[in-house]
Write a protein that binds this DNA or RNA. Structure first.
Lengths: 191, 191
DNA sequence: GGCTCCATGTAAGGAGTTACATGATTCA
DNA sequence: TGAATCATGTAACTCCTTACATGGAGCC
């Protein structure tokens, strides 16, 4: 069986930071600027156990004066499976991923007209805050191959910028529909 | 308890298409141009049952000469909960959602240098195909409030275009790192 | 001494995936 | 008459969420 997204990312994290603890892997998820990673212990620790069971990760007790902890390494098999996972681009991955704000805008007509601008304000605030966080993040100094981290951070930034440009267009559309321009064409809410 | 993303979208779909069958709801998910919606029967049908149990959806047998089927409607409570769900913008939603291609680019350094350009070719192809599909989709003629559908479709399109611009930058970065410009600075793979 | 961070788990319950299962209608 | 579409579900399994649970190390 092939790796899930979560398992693939765990292998990726270990590959750029090994040797590292399960705790450190989880910290990476917690610090992710991206919407959609869970980072709950109940997901990460069992996933790592599965990967050890598949012999793609190996754990050895820490040597030096470190605290009681298990250090994780990729096995040779793990290096191979990581490469396979990274290469596994499927056609549908080219599309836009689910975005909770876009999803909600799809049903914006369900909101009373008077609340739509406030809703869009909130979306824009959230996006602006996220953009600030994204441009402010320093790449992990412990990681090797930092150019990929920079590439990814740039990707996050460009996606948020595109979202902001789009939100401003949506505002225009909502104003037109909100009756300010064509009051007689107000769409009836399903309610 | 508040609605999950899946449950919220189901309410949204029913609100713009009611009365409609569970089958029709599921078809919407299947036709979604977006990466991340599952559309499996084992997810949708139980979710609709839950929503009926919560009295936000109501099902009535179809009247007219239609096939044996149950028509879904939003209850008054459902209309309220849909509005609450649409309005529920949280800070972290402003960020970029998880994108499987971006995720993989993060660990692109795990691939042998010779395979990286081919990988990026695949990503670009997938994105171009997705963009073609996204610009080609006709908005659902049965839906009310089609301006929101247009807004959402535009959002999908703009996100994919941003992804394409980004992929071209990543290609440049990968070339630099691939040794064509600074051969002596090739990063060592973790392998 | 108490707070924060490092470090690792488990248990119950809920939700999703995959595969199995059924049957009517429409159209070529 | 067969294929596609409409239509609805369930069962086993896996996985994730939330909450609980524990304990050492470093620091003020």
């Amino acid at each position: 069986m092939s790796l899930s997204e979560l398992e693939g990312v765990i292998l990726g994290i270990v590959s750029t930071r090994q040797p590292c603890t399960a705790y450190a892997v989880r910290s990476r998820f917690e610090q992710s600027p991206t919407w959609g990673w869970s980072s709950s212990k109940g997901a990460i620790y069992p996933a790592i156990s599965r990967l050890i069971g598949r012999a793609v990760l190996e754990s050895r007790p820490a040597e030096k004066g470190r605290r009681k902890s298990e250090m994780l390494f990729l096995t040779t098999k793990g290096e191979g499976e990581l490469q396979v996972w990274v290469s596994s681009i499927r056609e549908e991955m080219g599309g836009a991923p689910v975005d909770p704000i876009r999803t909600r805008v799809n049903y914006l007509a369900a909101l009373p007209i008077g609340e739509r601008q406030a809703f869009l304000d909130q979306c824009e605030e959230a996006a602006i805050a996220a953009l600030k966080r994204a441009t402010g993040t320093v790449p992990d100094p412990d990681a090797q191959n930092r150019w990929t981290l920079h590439a990814t951070a740039l990707g996050v930034q460009m996606q948020i910028e595109a979202k902001l440009r789009w939100l401003r267009i949506v505002r225009e559309l909502a104003l037109d529909q909100g009756g300010l321009i064509f009051p007689e064409k107000m769409p009836q809410e399903p309610s």
